[in-house]
Design a protein around this nucleic acid. Structure first.
Length: 632
DNA sequence: TGCATACCTG
DNA sequence: CAGGTATGCA
């Protein structure tokens, strides 16, 4: 949808085009306040939005705005309107692109120049932008305001240009505005992230809510030689700098804005990279990306299926329907067998010798990133394009990646054979352990999401809720019972109606048993029995009502109504073959009820107890397969 | 008493 | 299915 309107500006990336075309109109948009905190912004925005179509007295920004198809200078709104300022804008374009490149990879991450930016790059940028906007659309309520604003500008433009020739033009204008919005959001997010970078460098977070987000803080803190006051001063100064610069640039010309952006972004990124590496190296951490981030089975799987690598390794926006189920399988199959190993789960996380060269892991990478690249690059050993990385950065910020890195154990047992393929779980758990405050923290889900996303697990697109679910219910030893456990219990009921606590512990090895959990499990089976016996009594009475004269005339087969009722209850998905023995037991139970009822024993309040006593002896052994939770 | 289970209810 | 209550046993 963006191709068409941008076609006339095809010699640059979309980012360039957008910047070139519309960066000066930013103040007409609702997010203009991003650059400043004073009323000047509102005034400027109001002035722009209210007058730009009526007067040419507006600032230079408005002049540039005119370069867009809706402007005054270029009457027809043709692209030619740009030419008078081409050099100027191209210089800015190059700088801003450089900013993005700096963020997307290391300064030397890009190996080709601006002129080599391909259509693919532009496409990636567009996709990233779209995906980003898509994400934000769900997160931001005031989003519709953006659209209305854009719509206003668009309409306004049509009238101001005096050219009513086209809905098409309006449409294009509208699209451009939307794109501009996206870009501005991107920039907005960029600045926010970098402000956060500085803020979080403060060992004493001002905002405790973000404490768990700053897992890197733990790392930095350990070996930090900087005095707390230094951090404090620095962060404050940086924040103030940003605001001042933004304000200043708002009031001055756009080159300054870009310069400010460039400087802030570059400085923040570089600073963080340096610091992380410095601290990491001084504390003996191995931040080699391959060791930590490319050793998941998913990636290896992808490696084997290199043809599908690009799609499979696409960042989260590439929805892979099979992704989550597969992840769950990995999880389930990788559980530890012994509850005692629980504390060892940490060591299960990232291991796999992972000496695989980066290039072999990511065969699609055309320009492999150096090892000493920007931190967020660490987490992308996948053939991501800059735009993807940018998106990632915008979504989670460099800190997020630092957080992910810092979640990595200081010393990994890379030779550990029981490499577990569930980095997110493991990481989450480690985070819980190392940072100690992940547990029920409201922001824990964010960290989890970030961590997940940083681990080269593009297929692991986990919603916050799901992640919380994971974090709370399934480290390697289960602390709570899940629907899967319930299902398993139900299937076990086909074998045992009265499982002992030992049996339960044996067949739920991934559950950390405590009094509560045990009670819950026992309660489950109690409920199962309850339903079972209710059905038995019901069908027994029905048989009697139906005139069945003899017990032997009562049988239970897979076609029986009774069996269907039971199967529906315990094996709803009907994906489990109910053992014949269960049919036998059911038939016996039915007979017991029939006999008792026909013998009028049901007048005794405790008449069922005798039946229970019989049935409880009919339990069979639960198959060994049930011991593996992956059986589910 | 404390625990386990059955029974009842929502 | 879980919570609450009742019952029975050691």
């Amino acid at each position: 949808m963006y191709d068409e309107p941008l076609a006339p500006y095809s010699n640059g990336s979309i980012i360039s085009q957008l910047l070139c075309k519309t960066i000066h109109s930013k103040r007409a948009l609702d997010e203009s306040h991003f650059y400043l905190s004073s009323s000047a912004a509102a005034a400027a925005a109001a002035a722009d939005s209210g007058q730009e179509d009526q007067s040419s007295v507006s600032s230079k920004d408005s002049t540039v705005e005119a370069a867009s198809p809706v402007g005054l200078v270029s009457t027809g709104g043709s692209p030619e309107g740009e030419h008078p300022i081409n050099d100027h804008l191209q210089a800015k374009r190059a700088r801003v692109e450089n900013i993005i490149r700096v963020m997307a990879g290391s300064p030397n991450g890009r190996q080709h120049g601006d002129g080599e930016r391909s259509d693919a790059d532009a496409r990636d940028a567009r996709e990233a932008r779209e995906a980003y906007r898509e994400n934000k659309r769900k997160q931001r309520l005031p989003q519709h305001q953006d659209h209305s604003c854009a719509g206003q500008v668009s309409r306004k433009a049509g009238g101001g240009g005096g050219s009513e020739n086209s809905n098409a033009k309006d449409e294009e204008c509208h699209k451009l505005k939307e794109q501009l919005h996206s870009m501005q959001r991107l920039l907005h997010q960029l600045q926010e992230k970098f402000l956060q970078v500085y803020n979080r460098e403060d060992p004493e977070y001002d905002n405790p809510d973000e404490a768990d987000m700053g897992a890197e803080h733990d790392v930095l803190e350990e070996s930090s030689e900087l005095h707390e006051d230094d951090f404090d001063r620095k962060s404050r100064r940086a924040a103030a700098d940003c605001k001042d610069r933004a304000k200043a640039t708002q009031q001055r010309e756009s080159p300054n804005l870009q310069e400010a952006l460039k400087q802030e972004l570059s400085r923040a990124v570089n600073d963080c990279v340096d610091r992380v590496f410095k601290k990491a190296s001084s504390s003996g951490l191995d931040l080699s990306p391959r060791q930590h981030l490319c050793s998941t089975p998913e990636l290896q799987l992808v490696d084997r299926k290199s043809q599908q690598a690009s799609s499979a390794l696409d960042p989260p926006q590439a929805d892979d329907p099979a992704a989550k189920p597969r992840s769950l399988e990995y999880y389930d199959s990788s559980e530890v067998q012994s509850p005692q190993d629980q504390t060892e789960a940490l060591s299960l996380v990232v291991r796999k010798p992972a000496v695989t060269p980066l290039s072999s892991v990511t065969p699609a990478v055309k320009r492999p990133y150096p090892v000493h690249q920007a931190p967020f690059q660490f987490n992308y050993t996948t053939p991501l394009h800059d735009s993807h990385i940018l998106e990632h950065l915008l979504k989670y910020g460099p800190h997020s990646n630092f957080g992910g890195l810092s979640c990595m154990p200081p010393s990994l047992d890379r030779t550990s054979p029981d490499s577990v393929d569930l980095p997110w779980d493991a990481i989450a758990m480690r985070s819980k352990v190392t940072s100690g405050h992940l547990g029920h923290h409201p922001r824990s889900s964010s960290l989890g999401a970030v961590t997940v996303d940083n681990l080269c697990l593009p297929h692991v697109k986990i919603e916050c809720g799901e992640l919380v679910c994971f974090l709370t219910r399934r480290p390697y030893i289960q602390e709570g019972l899940t629907p899967s456990h319930l299902k398993k219990a139900k299937l076990m009921f086909f074998y045992t109606r009265y499982p002992s606590s030992n049996v339960l512990k044996t067949f739920f090895p991934d559950v950390k048993f405590n009094r509560c959990i045990t009670s819950q499990l026992i309660k489950w089976f109690s409920n199962f029995r309850e339903f079972y016996y209710i059905q038995m009594e019901k069908f027994a009475r029905q048989a009697i009502l139906d005139g069945v004269g003899e017990v032997k005339d009562i049988s239970v087969s897979r076609d029986s109504e009774l069996f269907r009722a039971l199967n529906m209850h315990y094996n709803k998905a009907n994906d489990f073959h109910v053992p014949d023995r269960f049919l036998e037991v059911a038939e016996i139970t039915l007979h017991e009820f029939y006999n008792a009822i026909t013998a009028s024993k049901d007048s005794d309040p405790a008449w069922k107890k005798a039946i229970y006593k019989v049935i409880c002896k009919l339990d069979s052994d639960v198959p060994e397969e049930f011991k593996t939770s992956s059986y589910l």
